[in-house]
Design a protein around this nucleic acid. Structure first.
Lengths: 159, 159
DNA sequence: CTGGGAAGTCACACGGTCGGAATTACGCCC
DNA sequence: GGGCGTAATTCCGACCGTGTGACTTCCCAG
């Protein structure tokens, strides 16, 4: 399946869905935190195109930042999330210990993790993130303020 | 009991015990994160004097920073720790949720907390912190590189 | 008085983000 | 094809938070 030009979510759309500024999205793309996986921009006036998976990761980053975690630590968290690609991510807890990150799938596993490590942890509960993202896509993704059949088709193919 | 001039820990000594730079300690004192509770400096050449409690709080701050938490969030955490003054802090877990901080005293309490809130948490396990601090004081506090009976007395009165 | 140590001062660096403006591509219309 | 308008990216300087390093000033003990 060849990548269609309209596939994925545009930069400004992503900012609305995830709840971040364009500046942030741009900086993160430029500094390799999260680049648009569907399509990079080819210059001014062209568009970055992000996948649904990109949006999920961005949402997690946003949460971490809101909780006062530095962007550097968020970078590590995202690496872990990318490593857990095949797992049931939506029901897990992402546990960041100093220098490492793990996905915990049960309360017991979580408690065990908290007894080890260096003694300081960042925890991201993932099971509400997908729902929240889907709700935001419903609001900002398929139905922009200015009705646009063209954009609607793009949003549909992104999920 | 009047405060003795030699009471408490001197600035550079605190840096060794806690494992931070003098610049950090200075910046934190100047920006009101943690000021020396025993005695402020009265100008160049005079000394800041910190209490044992100050050192404990500094150690927690250090841990948070090492885990990638911003200083702003660490400020909130310390406020919570100050609020839990009468509690058995040494065996608790400090749980930072977005906008609030709580001390959890059992695994069950901890799990409950993780099911609420905004979904992102910073957790500091406190039960090793006191031991670690006491070990560092044994190393850097009462027995500096240059033996000094004067300083030894100060360290003794700090605990 | 002198020397050592501690705090104070100041310019700077870096990460992260912001605002404003410039540049560019693209789609549409004539 | 050319022109126009819109949207998106790029560029640039500035700001803020969090320190760092070099240097100065000051205090205190001997």
């Amino acid at each position: 399946m060849a990548v269609q030009e309209n596939e994925g979510y545009r930069g400004p759309q992503v900012c609305k869905i995830v709840g971040i500024t364009y500046r942030q999205l741009d900086y993160w793309a430029r500094t390799d935190l999260l680049r648009p996986s569907v399509s990079e921009a080819r210059g001014s006036g062209t568009q970055r195109r992000y996948s649904y998976r990109d949006l999920l990761e961005l949402k997690v980053i946003k949460r971490l930042l809101d909780a006062g975690v530095s962007l550097q630590s968020a970078r590590r968290a995202i690496e872990c999330l990318r490593g857990g690609l095949g797992e049931d991510v939506a029901s897990a807890n992402l546990v960041l210990d100093e220098g490492s990150s793990v996905l915990a799938h049960s309360d017991g596993e979580l408690i065990d993790l908290l007894k080890g490590g260096q003694g300081v942890f960042n925890i991201v509960r993932l099971n509400g993130v997908v729902e929240e993202l889907d709700a935001a896509i419903t609001e900002f993704g398929p139905a922009p303020t200015v009705p646009d059949t063209h954009v609607e088709a793009a949003a549909g193919s992104g999920s």
